[in-house]
Simulated assay, not measured.
Amino acid sequence: MTYTVEKAKGSKEITVLDSKLDINERWVFEPYLLDIQPNEEGDIVLPFLEYLIDNYPSVKIDRDSIIDTKRGCFTGMSTLVISFTDEDEAQSYANALNNSTKRK
Score class of each variant (00 low, 15 high):
Lys60Gln: 11
Ile61Pro: 01
Ile61Glu: 01
Ile61Gly: 06
Asp62Gln: 13
Asp64Gln: 12
Asp64Leu: 10
Asp64Tyr: 04
Ser65Ile: 07
Ile66Tyr: 08
Ile66Lys: 12
Ile67Tyr: 09
Ile67Gln: 09
Asp68Thr: 12
Lys70His: 02
Arg71Tyr: 08
Arg71Val: 09
Gly72Gln: 10
Cys73Phe: 13
Phe74Gln: 10
Phe74Asp: 13
Met77Ala: 13
Met77Gln: 14
Met77Tyr: 04
Met77Arg: 15
Met77Ile: 08
Ser78Phe: 06
Ser78Cys: 09
Ser78Thr: 14
Ser78Lys: 12
Thr79Trp: 01
Thr79Ile: 07
Leu80Asp: 00
Leu80Phe: 12
Val81Ser: 03
Val81Arg: 02
Val81Glu: 10
Ile82Gln: 02
Ile82Asp: 00
Ser83Ile: 02
Ser83Gln: 05
Ser83Arg: 02
Phe84Met: 00
Thr85Ala: 01
Glu87Ser: 11
Asp88Met: 06
Asp88Gly: 09
Asp88Phe: 02
Asp88Tyr: 14
Ala90Thr: 08
Ala90Met: 04
Ala90Pro: 07
Gln91Phe: 05
Gln91Asn: 14
Ser92Cys: 12
Tyr93Asn: 03
Ala94Met: 11
Ala94Gln: 04
Asn95Gln: 11
Asn95Asp: 15
Ala96Arg: 08
Leu97Asn: 00
Leu97Ile: 06
Leu97Cys: 00
Leu97His: 01
Asn99Gly: 10
Thr101His: 04
Thr101Asp: 01
Thr101Val: 11
Thr101Glu: 00
Thr101Met: 07
Lys102Ile: 00
